[in-house]
């Protein structure tokens, strides 16, 4: 059996992912999170009377805190596996990746473990996020100046 034949056989016998179902679940979860976030924000703006900008920051803090707490309590990974991008794409995914790395390497030393590996997964988000922000800022300057 040559390479092509074997890879075709593998493709034929490997079960396909349920992309439509996964997309729908992710959409549902992502949407729900957005809805809750908006509700909290409006509540903060109208009941506690802070500015929209401050309220947005508070919403982010609440979401990051809850995602980290639930990761530590050990059930958030099961939710992420179910709802996939619906929980990974929002800020909850970032918090989840940092907390789970921290839990994994807490026994490996403060420098060699926790320090070195805290951003094992989130590092790429930071790096490419900063690079993207840099180029978008240049683009903004070019357009508006």
């Amino acid at each position: 059996m040559n390479k092509k034949e074997y890879l075709e056989l593998v493709k034929k016998l490997t079960p396909k992912e349920e992309k439509l179902k996964n997309t729908f679940l992710a959409f549902l979860m992502g949407g729900t999170l957005g809805f809750i976030a908006e509700a909290i924000k409006l509540l903060l703006v109208y009941k506690i009377c802070i500015t929209t900008k401050e309220a947005t920051t508070w919403v982010l803090i609440i979401f990051i805190f809850l995602a980290s707490l639930f990761t530590g309590l050990g059930f958030f990974d099961k939710l992420v596996m179910k709802f996939k991008a619906g929980l990974i794409v929002p800020i909850t995914g970032f918090a989840h990746s940092v907390t789970s790395s921290a839990l994994d390497y807490k026994e490996d030393g403060l420098i060699t473990g926790l320090g070195g590996y805290l951003f094992r997964l989130a590092g790429c988000v930071l790096l490419y996020g900063i690079i993207a922000a840099f180029f978008l800022a240049i683009l903004k300057v070019i357009i508006y100046v």
């Binding site: 490997t14 990761t71 958030f76 990974d77 992420v80 789970s100 790395s101 839990l103």
Partner: peptide
């Protein structure tokens, strides 16, 4: 693979 508590989606295969 990934950290233990990280819920990386695992494909059926």
């Amino acid at each position: 693979r990934f950290p233990v508590e990280y819920g990386a989606p695992k494909p059926i295969r």
